[in-house]
């Protein structure tokens, strides 16, 4: 079986620093991480490869070249190959362009199934998987938290999707695109101590626009249909620690507080 995993590298959103002067997010300090949902997808793919060693898994990502060490670590875990789409021309791509670029590369890879995350913790749109599915004319399901391993074959899969108050089981014909959530239990292992320096450079491929051949006007910021023009942090009130008693007066303070902040 041939699986393609589309993986995004994201900054650690719990620990990024925000520059209030330039209104930008400073990412240099913390290394990029594999998007949590995507790590689950990779984890599932690896589980399948353990069950069925013939399984071939190719990882595809669009990202700056600074993620190469992290991609190499993915390869050290036993993934067959990785393709990094990276070109200064692609910077600032919105989801429309991102999906177009990713699809153009995936189209050339033979696959029985594409796995992705459901949403990325930085851009946070959940657009890309549906858009890739549309471009490649594939069926697609989001919010998958369980895939039945025994029934995962080249022609179909049975998956459980998490909804707001229930889980729904679907049977879906393959090839299709399956997007996992981080609630799913497939853990991506870490590289073992003894493999930390394994040379994997032969299995890593970098594609620039020279290979992809897009008109520069179609990609990056110029090709995008949306553009981020400003970012700001949410204002957080500084805490005053006002102390009241649990009497009528105190209850009134709480009530007014809840009311003026729109909770009632």
């Amino acid at each position: 079986m041939r699986i393609v995993c589309v993986v995004k590298f994201v900054p650690d959103v719990d620990n990024f620093t925000y520059n209030y002067e330039t209104h930008t997010i400073e990412r240099e300090h913390s290394p990029m991480l594999i998007n949590p949902d995507d790590a689950r997808a990779l984890g599932f793919a690896l589980t399948m490869k353990k069950r069925e060693p013939q399984t071939c898994i190719e990882v595809v990502t669009m990202a700056p070249r600074s993620v190469i060490p992290q991609l190499e670590d993915i390869l050290r875990l036993g993934f067959d190959s990785a393709t990094l789409i990276s070109d200064q021309l692609f910077a600032g791509s919105d989801t429309y362009v991102t999906s177009k670029l990713l699809s153009s590369v995936i189209r050339k890879i033979p696959y029985d199934c594409i796995l992705s995350g459901t949403h990325a913790i930085d851009g946070d749109t959940s657009h890309v998987p549906s858009q890739i599915a549309q471009s490649l004319d594939l069926d697609h399901l989001n919010f998958i938290h369980h895939i039945e391993e025994e029934r995962f074959t080249c022609s179909s899969a049975v998956v459980e999707v998490e909804g707001e108050s229930s889980y729904t089981t679907f049977e879906i014909a393959l090839p299709a695109l399956l997007s996992l959530t981080r609630e799913s239990a497939y853990r991506l292992p870490y590289v073992r101590y003894k493999n930390l320096n394994l040379d994997v450079s032969e299995r890593l491929h970098i594609l620039t626009n020279e290979q992809l051949g897009f008109d520069p006007a179609e990609v990056g910021l110029s090709g995008s249909r949306t553009q981020v023009v400003s970012t700001h942090t949410k204002e957080h009130m500084t805490r005053r620690k006002k102390v009241v008693k649990s009497d009528d007066e105190g209850i009134e303070v709480i009530y007014t507080f809840l009311k003026s902040n729109g909770f009632i």
Partner: peptide, 18 residues
Amino acid sequence: RCIAPSVSMRLETGLVAD
């Protein structure tokens, strides 16, 4: 969340989430 992105892709237009 599932349909909107695929429609926008088909219509080759932008989409803003949330």
